[in-house]
């Protein structure tokens, strides 16, 4: 945060925050969103289902890489839940995905978490990709990591949900702003931010 303050002057001079800054090593704003299909998933009601991007009919899709074990994800859950509720009738679908190869994060654990802890915490479909291919295709290296897709399934924003792990301290709401812009037929002012969170370790093939 201090860094924010220290660099405020510079930011004021230089264009919108993050404009032009690249963090994701694989995809960038404007890229076609990598497709995925048949990903085993758990619905908010605890039923086993599957996730296929092309099945999503909403105008805007928010793909978010998550992990049960990750405190940064847990810390963001309330915000994500609120966001999902607030936007579900506005043509926005939230899709949670996990690609971590650790027991705490695999599908049985996701199912248990949704069943045990679904006290309003998880109200989006939560899938698990054991191949990790989806995470790699999106260049996701930590959780939570967000990707906002438009109607054409082009990536229009990628990065963090907001600018602080503590909700009360958040002053910039990147995902919401990007979604609002798209719903209004505009381009997000900020297209990429640096996502922070627990690292995703990809298995070496």
């Amino acid at each position: 945060m201090r860094k924010v303050l220290l660099s405020l002057a510079a930011l004021a001079i230089v264009a919108p925050a993050f404009a032009g800054e690249r963090y994701n090593k694989v995809v960038k704003p404007g890229d076609k969103a990598p497709d995925f299909s048949g990903i085993p998933a758990v619905s908010p009601s605890g039923e086993q289902t599957s996730l296929t991007l092309s099945d999503v009919k909403e105008d805007v899709v928010v793909v978010v890489f998550l992990a049960n074990h990750c405190p940064a994800v847990v810390g963001c859950e309330d915000r994500l839940n609120e966001f999902t509720s607030e936007y579900k009738d506005k043509g926005v679908r939230v899709v949670g995905l996990c690609v971590n190869d650790i027991d705490q994060d695999k599908l049985p654990a996701i199912k248990k978490r949704v069943a045990d802890k679904n006290d309003g915490k998880i109200n989006y479909i939560y899938g698990y990709d054991e191949t990790q291919a989806v995470g790699k295709a999106y260049g996701a290296v930590n959780t939570p990591s967000f990707f906002v897709l438009d109607k054409d399934r082009t990536i229009r924003y990628l990065g963090s949900f907001d600018d602080n792990m503590q909700e009360a301290k958040a002053t910039k709401h990147y995902v919401k702003d990007a979604v609002d812009a798209l719903l209004a037929g505009k381009s997000p002012a900020i297209e990429e931010t640096k996502p922070f969170g627990c690292g995703i370790q990809y298995t070496k093939k």
Binding site: M1, R2, K3, V4, A17, F18, C70, P71, A72, N142, S160, D162, D163, N164, M165, T193, K194, F196, G197, C198
Partner: peptide, 9 residues
């Protein structure tokens, strides 16, 4: 940009 992060405690 700053902070937000990660992990823990």
């Amino acid at each position: 940009m700053f902070r937000k992060s990660a992990l823990v405690l």
